[in-house]
Design a protein around this nucleic acid. Structure first.
Length: 248
RNA sequence: GCACUGCUUGA
């Protein structure tokens, strides 16, 4: 069963949905037992369909799992919540969170992060912040993913003071910004033409022991080129090897 | 043991 699961999931990741479905059918006819993972992967197949009713089939799968087993677990719920959030169906995503709690299934960081990302991608930053405050007040330990999603949204919205204050209290709250956190911040600064500040963050990154990665480099290039600072871009490109960066 | 979360440009 685990081998089938791994195979089917790889096919999904490679966008070979038809092959994934076919392989899932083989699993069904093999007589091997289906696990929660198997059905979570099947849920992903349903959700990757382009049909308008893909969520209806997802809901009915979830119902059947609740009724007959194997029962959904946190990954199953998070998978569905993530898909709903990405589709902008936040209200329904929260409905699944309620269902999850009703069934005594404990949410994970991925569960919450998917919901926060859903809010942020709809531009509902206030709601996202409110939700973060809420789960923290329930003792949920903040993680880097969660704050990076928030900082991404705030940065795209130009709310840099807010970003600074979130970063300022990160140590106290028990999380550390990573390279992606700085990347999203720098990306927002670049889009807002605050190029100087973006470059200063490079030093901050390195002081915190973080190595700028390929995305960092591309963010800075894009920003310099947009601002017709081609000369500076060329200079940076020339220096990239001595900074141990590897443009692709 | 296998399944769920964040960043750049390009259509």
């Amino acid at each position: 069963t685990a081998s089938y699961n791994a195979l089917i999931n790889s096919l999904i990741l490679a966008n070979h949905t038809a092959a994934a479905s076919a392989t899932f059918s083989s699993l069904l006819s093999s007589g091997l037992p289906l696990t929660t993972s198997s059905l979570t992967i099947f849920l992903k197949i349903l959700l990757s369909s382009t049909r308008a009713n893909r969520f209806d089939s997802a809901y009915s799968l979830l119902d059947k799992m609740l009724q007959y087993g194997p029962p959904p677990d946190a990954v199953t719920y998070s998978t569905l919540i993530g898909a709903l959030s990405r589709a902008g169906r936040i209200k329904e995503a929260f409905g699944i969170l309620d269902l999850m709690l009703d069934n005594k299934c404990c949410p994970t960081p991925q569960t919450y992060n998917s919901l926060i990302l859903g809010y942020c991608s709809q531009g509902k930053i206030k709601e996202a912040k409110h939700f973060v405050a809420l789960i923290e007040s329930y003792g949920f330990a903040p993680d880097t993913f969660m704050y990076t999603v928030l900082i991404d949204a705030l940065s795209r919205n130009g709310e840099f003071d807010e970003v600074e204050s979130i970063l300022g209290e990160s140590q106290v709250k028990g999380w550390k910004p990573d390279e992606v956190t700085y990347n999203v911040y720098m990306n927002g600064l670049c889009k807002a033409r605050r190029i100087d500040k973006a470059f200063r963050l490079l030093d901050t990154m390195r002081c915190n022991g973080l190595v700028p990665n390929l995305d960092t480099l591309n963010i800075l290039f894009d920003c310099l080129c947009r601002d017709s600072m081609l000369q500076e871009a060329m200079d940076l490109f020339g220096k990239s090897s001595e900074l141990d960066w590897f443009p692709d």
